[in-house]
Design a binder for these strands. Structure first.
Lengths: 334, 334
DNA sequence: CTGAAAGCGCTTACAG
DNA sequence: CTGAAAGCGCTTACAG
């Protein structure tokens, strides 16, 4: 048996589809006596409105598409959590897609979301994306889009990010004040905004303190736990070993931690750590890590609120760059 | 300017909508010369097919709805990852919704997904759900639904779960063989299938070894890190302290770990641990934890494959109960 | 208070 | 090879 439609109910009750539709939406046009009969029938038949049909007419879906590189990275899980939670409060549904850090997958996801006619898109860019043509397609489709965390400047979209450069500078500067001199950096990927900015802040802090930047101590190889392990190994193979490692995110830090401890090194005695991270994750480390404290949940909420504003405001205010400030939180890894 | 439609292009090229539609889908009906012209125009105008319209006609969306209690629980992040990844390979999109362990939110999510006309639903039930009426609505809507991890038996739906009872039994039995006698259990919520089964397995192992079940040692209070902390505190306040704790999942274990270490206790010297968990999470613990090794990614993949089968197979084979076996993996927490 | 008409953007028979 | 007709399930003017 096919699913109940307005037409089915109209026939059963000998009224028109319009009346059914109005009654179900509690439109004042319909008498309350009729409304009751219609609602009762709807429940009896298990009628559910077909949003597809409704959306086709209204040309709105109340649905937001999200593109993230990797949800096994808990930073993005928490960000998606923030997005879903605030979307729900605003009456929006979320479609989550994952690029797996692949340019082609990212493009495919974006095109699918546009074809699904989502009302807007939230994206954190893949580390391997170099071709930005798909974003001109997004522009043509007139789908509002907001970058979050990993942004793409100069494309004319709004972005929500954190003060990567300053926070990196501050953290490394703090470490230098504490007496550390030999400071390495597990840098993620410099093809991303966060990778670049955090690395720049790190270098700036060294230079301002009259320390030289040692190229072999800047390891660029991704954002995963595995990358942290490999990165630490590379670093520790060198004759000239650092005293402290500045890590680009919590996952890289946890990989480096694990590898250091596997090698029998003491933290912070043999090797100290400081870097970007967030409490739900890095507080579990042993010892807990001194972090530039990110708040992925808040980032997700802010990104959604910003996108919602773009969707619902008629006036085109032009792209905005929203930057969330971050604080240093001291623990015992450094 | 509104988005380009088939009609727009038809007018520009002086052919019918049907011809445009066919050309774009590479239908043999249209001459290749015309196809080229049409495709060129489509690219120029940035045409993207409207899936809403397409779906309304086809009465399929190639979209699957997922309902999970909490994505900040990384078990579910990994499961969702597995679902999205295999869905992508099969050409399906995923809509993720979160119940926040609330019955009302779960019901709302389910109704929304049905109205969105998803082709199927994957759900892990909230710990606070007692009223199952919404599932009769799902039945009426004829939307295929598969439970995963936390299931609801006897409702006539297919489920994909793990052998909770046997695994719990085996783990606790192993601990007893190793010489532990005073074994407590942080039990999650007994209102869920996994909570019940794991607790039953734990009790069975005690009884089979002629140990008594101590009620005060079975702490029922949820599945989060916070619950693990509280649970451990409750346990440790007691005069009669256990030697080992059997934990219902990795998050509860990590909370208990953190609290134990905060109190200055040595693991496994002062208090040992064994329990359900998965490597990506529990291997980060210090010391790494002896676990009944779950694989949320695989669970997600299996759940999706099972649902896909139900969607695509015409023959109604009736509900199936798929149970994945789990292995004990020895580390140093016990 | 009730309903006939038109349309959202597609696709599928079917006719030529 | 090309297209006119009908319809997917709704909603919005508009007329009565």
């Amino acid at each position: 048996m096919a699913r109940t439609t307005l037409a089915d109910m109209a026939k059963l009750l000998n009224v028109s589809k319009v009346t059914i539709s109005k009654a179900l939406r509690n439109h004042p046009d319909v008498s309350s006596e009729l409304k009751t009969r219609i609602n009762d029938l709807a429940i009896e038949l298990g009628y559910t409105p077909n949003y597809i049909a409704r959306n086709l007419y209204s040309r709105r879906t109340r649905t937001i598409g999200v593109v993230v590189p990797d949800v096994s990275n808990s930073f993005f899980s928490y960000a998606v959590h923030g997005i879903i939670d605030s979307a729900d409060k605003a009456g929006y549904q979320i479609i989550v897609t994952i690029s797996r850090e692949e340019e082609a997958m990212e493009r495919k996801n974006l095109n699918t979301l546009i074809s699904m006619r989502v009302d807007g898109i939230l994206i954190s860019i893949s580390q391997n994306t170099h071709n930005y043509d798909v974003f001109t397609a997004v522009k043509k489709a007139e789908t509002p889009l907001v970058f979050f965390d990993r942004t793409l400047p100069d494309l004319g979209f709004t972005s929500v990010s954190v003060n990567d450069y300053q926070s990196a500078f501050r953290a490394v500067n703090y470490a230098i004040q504490k007496g550390y001199r030999k400071i390495a950096h597990l840098a993620g990927t410099l093809n991303t905004s966060i990778g670049r900015e955090r690395c720049n802040g790190y270098q700036k802090a060294l230079l301002e303190n009259n320390l030289t930047v040692t190229d072999e101590w800047v390891i660029e190889n991704g954002f995963t736990i595995e990358d942290g392990k490999n990165g630490f190994e590379k670093l520790w193979k060198q004759d000239n070993k650092p005293e402290l490692i500045f890590t680009v995110n919590g996952h890289v830090a946890s990989g480096a931690y694990a590898m250091a401890q596997k090698m029998g090194l003491k933290i912070p005695g043999d090797i100290a750590f400081i870097g970007f991270g967030f409490r739900e994750y890095t507080d579990m480390f042993n010892p807990p890590m001194t972090i530039i404290s990110e708040n992925p949940d808040l980032l997700g909420r802010t990104a959604f609120a910003t996108l919602l504003h773009e969707i619902e405001s008629k006036t085109n205010e032009g792209p905005k760059q929203i930057v969330l400030p971050l604080e240093l939180e001291l623990r015992s890894s450094c």
